[in-house]
Amino acid sequence: MAKTQVPAVEGLFTMGDDPRLIGGKGQSNDSYFFPKNMGGNDPALIGETEREEVLLSNTGTIWSFTTSSYPPPKPYVITTEPFVPIVIAAVELDNEKIVVLGQMAEGITVEDLSVGMRVRMIIDVLFEDEEHQHMVWKWEPELSEGQN
């Protein structure tokens, strides 16, 4: 029986055909936040107690990138033995002017990456247990026109 796919943490992203990060936005200005209720407030929004919930751009450009070449400690769940280095990119989202960290899709190495490269968001497996696949957002290079 196929395992059920569930978000690794609730409320941070949508799944399905057009997955998006779930962010916050000021009600009276265009400052964005991810996750919606985490990170510092824009002091201009001191009078607002609620952020508007918005779906963030699913494309952006790589701001910087690196690897986690040694196994991270818990609560990260190691899925491969031996450990395969994780490739991590910080991506500036197209519309929100915010940089979000995420793993690159499986099989991408740092040699494949450059600052300024176009990427898009996908949903992929972070780890599995007996019943579930725990899903998370990752980045993959955006194919330019003419590529498939």
């Binding site: 000021g26 265009d30 824009d42 915010i98």
Partner: peptide
């Protein structure tokens, strides 16, 4: 983007 955050602040409005 700074430790320990997953995202920077947005510089869209300011």
């Amino acid at each position: 983007v700074d430790m320990p955050y997953l995202a920077s602040d947005s510089w869209n409005a300011a």
